[in-house]
Simulated assay, not measured.
Amino acid sequence: MQNLKNIAVGFLVSFIGSIPLGYLNVVGFQVYEKTGLFPTALYLLGVIIIEFFVIYFTLIFANKLAANKRLTKYIEGFSIVFMFVLAYVFYSSANAKSDFSTSFNYAPFLLGIVLSCLNFIQIPFWTGWNLYLLNGNYIEVSKSRKYFYVFGTITGTFCGMLVLILSLHYFASNVDFLSKYLMQIIIPLVFVGLGILQTIKFYRKYYR
Rank of each mutant, 00 (worst) to 15 (best):
N3E: 14
L4V: 10
L4D: 03
L4N: 01
K5H: 03
N6R: 08
A8V: 09
G10H: 05
G10S: 06
V13C: 03
S14M: 14
P20V: 11
L21D: 07
Y23V: 15
Y23T: 13
G28Y: 01
G28M: 06
Q30T: 10
Q30G: 01
Y32C: 01
Y32L: 07
Y32W: 05
E33V: 11
E33K: 14
K34Y: 06
K34D: 04
K34F: 04
A41C: 12
A41Y: 05
L42D: 01
L42C: 06
L42S: 05
L42H: 00
L44R: 01
L44T: 05
L44Q: 04
I50Y: 03
E51S: 07
F52T: 15
I55H: 00
I60L: 15
K64Y: 14
L65D: 09
L65I: 15
L65P: 08
A67H: 09
N68R: 06
L71C: 07
K73Y: 05
Y74M: 14
E76S: 04
V81G: 02
V81I: 13
F84Y: 13
F84E: 06
V89H: 07
S92V: 04
A94P: 12
A94I: 12
N95L: 15
T102V: 14
T102R: 11
T102F: 06
F104I: 13
N105V: 12
Y106H: 12
A107G: 09
P108W: 06
P108V: 12
P108F: 10
L110Q: 05
L111T: 01
L111C: 02
L111A: 04
G112T: 08
I113V: 15
V114C: 08
C117M: 14
L118N: 00
F120R: 06
F120I: 15
I121G: 02
Q122V: 12
I123G: 13
W126A: 09
W126S: 09
G128K: 05
W129F: 11
L131V: 11
Y132M: 14
L133R: 02
L134Y: 03
N135S: 06
G136D: 00
N137R: 12
N137L: 09
I139L: 08
K143R: 04
K143A: 08
K143S: 04
S144P: 07
S144A: 11
R145L: 14
R145C: 06
K146R: 14
F148S: 10
F148Q: 03
Y149N: 01
G152T: 11
T155F: 07
G156K: 04
G156W: 10
F158N: 02
C159K: 02
C159Q: 03
M161L: 13
M161G: 01
L162W: 06
V163G: 00
L166Y: 04
L166V: 10
S167I: 08
S167Q: 01
L168E: 00
Y170S: 05
F171Q: 03
A172L: 09
S173W: 10
S173M: 11
D176A: 14
F177P: 00
L178C: 10
S179I: 09
Y181P: 00
L182W: 08
I186H: 02
I186E: 06
I186N: 02
P188W: 12
L189P: 15
L194N: 09
G195I: 13
T199G: 03
T199C: 03
Y203T: 15
Y203V: 15
R204I: 15
Y206K: 09
Y207D: 11
R208W: 07
